[in-house]
Amino acid sequence: MANVRARAMERTETLPVRELKALHEAAEEAAGPGHFRYRCEVAGQALPHKNGALRSELEGAECVWHKHKITRKYEERYRDGSGNRKRRTRTEVVSENSSVTAFFVEDGTGRMVIRPGSENFIGAEKVLDRFEPHTGSGNRLAIGPLSLDLGGGNGTIGYRREEWIVRPGSRAYVHGEASDASGLLAVGAPAEGGVFVLSARSEEELLRSEGHRMLGYGIGTGLAALAGLVLIVLGILH
């Protein structure tokens, strides 16, 4: 998947918003509204959409995008293969959510609407990472106006809360598909599948990261093959 994503980013041109809108206008004149679909990239500053900045669910931080995850750590009893009673520590995610509200990317030539869907935002700022021991019998957690059932209390050790945000004015790089199918031009996930990237890192940083990952994979594969060859040779010699 990493290699597919890297190739897609390398093949796709990053367009100024003004040029992307010009392409859309030309297509609209030729074919009418609602038919424009174009794989593209835009980069600039992430800014709140028309209704203003969001507030993250756990920390209440001002942002244009947020995600949280709450993980329950608990201890359970079980019997091993010999029938002996033992204990082990396990975890389960009891709440995970990211915002789907549209935001703008502004690059100096204009603003483009971005629809994040359920995509993760690479390089988002982590503003919360805290483990809280379970101290009572209550198993509900208030998140602003929400109240979550966190599961059974028996064996619960505690909860780890994590939250990530993208602040207004943060750098944003988006690789996806521009479309006016909803009646308004916006960039989001390709309608027929394909690579969709939301990132607080630049395209160059992402490609370097992908390159290092693929290099590490190649080295690991090569070493494994070499080790296998050595074992075969040793087996022959013996």
Rank of each mutant, 00 (worst) to 15 (best):
T135A: 15
P133W: 05
T101G: 03
A181T: 13
H175Y: 10
G138R: 14
N154C: 13
S170C: 01
A191G: 10
R167S: 14
S137A: 13
A142M: 10
E162C: 04
R167Y: 07
G169R: 06
E106M: 04
F103Q: 11
G158T: 09
V105D: 09
D129R: 07
F131M: 02
P133K: 03
G110C: 08
D180C: 04
S118M: 11
F103T: 12
A172T: 07
P190F: 11
A172M: 15
G108A: 12
L148C: 09
A186I: 11
V187G: 07
P133V: 03
T135P: 08
I122R: 10
K126N: 03
D129E: 07
L148E: 11
L150F: 09
P116M: 03
L184P: 04
F131R: 03
E192S: 09
A124S: 00
V166G: 05
G183A: 07
A178K: 09
T135W: 15
V127I: 07
L128R: 02
H134M: 06
G183R: 13
I122F: 09
R171E: 11
T101R: 13
G123M: 01
S147E: 14
V105L: 04
M112V: 03
G169E: 07
L128S: 03
H134V: 05
G136Q: 14
Y173W: 10
V174I: 13
P116R: 06
L184C: 06
G155Y: 02
L185T: 06
L150T: 13
L150R: 08
S147W: 08
